[in-house]
Simulated scan of single mutants.
Amino acid sequence: MTTNTGTSPDVLRYTAFSTDPAGGNPAGVVLDATGLDDATMLAVAAELGYSETAFLTADPAGAERAHAVRYFSPKTEVPFCGHATVAAAVALAERDGAGDFVFATRAGTVPVTVSREAGVLRATLTNVAPYVEGAAGDDVTEALAALGWSAADLDTALPPRIAFAGARHLVVAAATRARLADLSYDFARLEALMRRLDLTTVQLVWRESESVFHVRNPFPVGGVVEDPATGGAAAAFGAYARELGLVPAESVLTLHQGADMGRPGVLTVTLRDGDARVRVGGAAVRVVV
C-alpha cells in the first residue's frame, strides 16, 4: 500500500489472474474514494501507471458488501474493467472476509463472489448482459493494417466480431501462435479506429484446443500498449464463442494471457446453458512495493 498524506487516497496494488505478484495484470485499488472528483481519480491512475485503477465508495443505499465502483486508466475513465474488479474484490475480502459482493459500475450491476481455495483468494464476477455484433469489413481492414496483419494471418473459423460484456472489444483471431506472439502495431492508427468504434481493447485470439485459448489485448485508448490480463474482454470473448457456436452452451474456457509480456496469467470463463451472462474468475494477490 502507498500511504498518501493530505487529501490523497490510499492506493493498494494487486495483480489479478495470477498467484505470482510478477504475473497477471496489476491494478490499483482505492477502497475509499469518497470525495474524490474525476480529475483526482484520473491523476491517481496516471501516476500509478497501471492499465486501470478501481475507485470504490460505499453503496449510497447503505447495503452491506455493496459498493459503487469507477475505473480509470492513465488516460480516461472506462465503463468496466474485469481485472480491477477481481483485484478490488480480493482486497475487500482480505478486509471484510470472503463471500459475496455487489459492484455498481457504469456498465451495470456486477455480482462478485470471493472464495478461498488452497489458501488463495479467487474472485468470480458475473458480467452484465453481453451482445455480439458484426464488424464492418472496412473496419476490419483498417484494424489489420494498424496491426500489421494480413488476411492470411486470420483464423477463418473465428471471424472478426465486436463483442460486449460491459465494454466493447473487437475480436480478431490469429491463425497461428507465432502470429499472436509477434505484436508490433501502429499505436496512433489503432487508437483512432478504436475511438471511432468505441472499443476498449482489441481482443487478439489463438485457439489451442476446444476450450483453451491464448489472448492478447492492445489497449492504446487507455494509454498503454498492451493489457496483460483482461477480464472484461475475456467475458466478451465468452459471449462471442457461444454466439458463434464455437463451444457448447455449457462450457468452461481457459484463457492464457500475458506470457508474451513476461506476465503470465490465467482467466477462467464460465458459460451456463440458459444464462446469457458470462462469469470470469481468477486469483489475485497483493503487490508489495
Rank of each mutant, 00 (worst) to 15 (best):
R70Y: 02
A259R: 11
D96R: 12
A16T: 00
M41N: 00
G119R: 08
R272E: 15
V280G: 07
S184N: 13
G28H: 05
G166M: 06
V269R: 10
A129V: 15
G97T: 12
V287A: 08
A283N: 05
T85L: 06
R122L: 10
V86G: 04
G222I: 04
G148N: 02
L121K: 05
R13G: 02
P79Y: 05
A163I: 14
V269F: 10
G258S: 11
V171E: 13
S209V: 13
Q257G: 08
G35E: 05
G281S: 15
A151S: 12
V30M: 02
V252I: 13
A87T: 04
E208D: 15
L144K: 09
V224R: 11
L253K: 01
G99Q: 08
E226S: 03
W149M: 07
R207Q: 15
P130N: 14
G134A: 15
Y14H: 05
S184F: 02
V86E: 03
V110W: 06
D37Q: 01
A284H: 05
R106K: 14
S209L: 11
G265E: 11
G245L: 07
F164C: 12
L190T: 10
R70W: 00
V112P: 10
P220H: 04
T200V: 12
A283R: 06
V140D: 07
E243T: 15
T3E: 10
P130W: 15
T201N: 07
F55V: 05
R196D: 03
E208F: 06
R196P: 00
H256F: 06
P111R: 08
S209M: 09
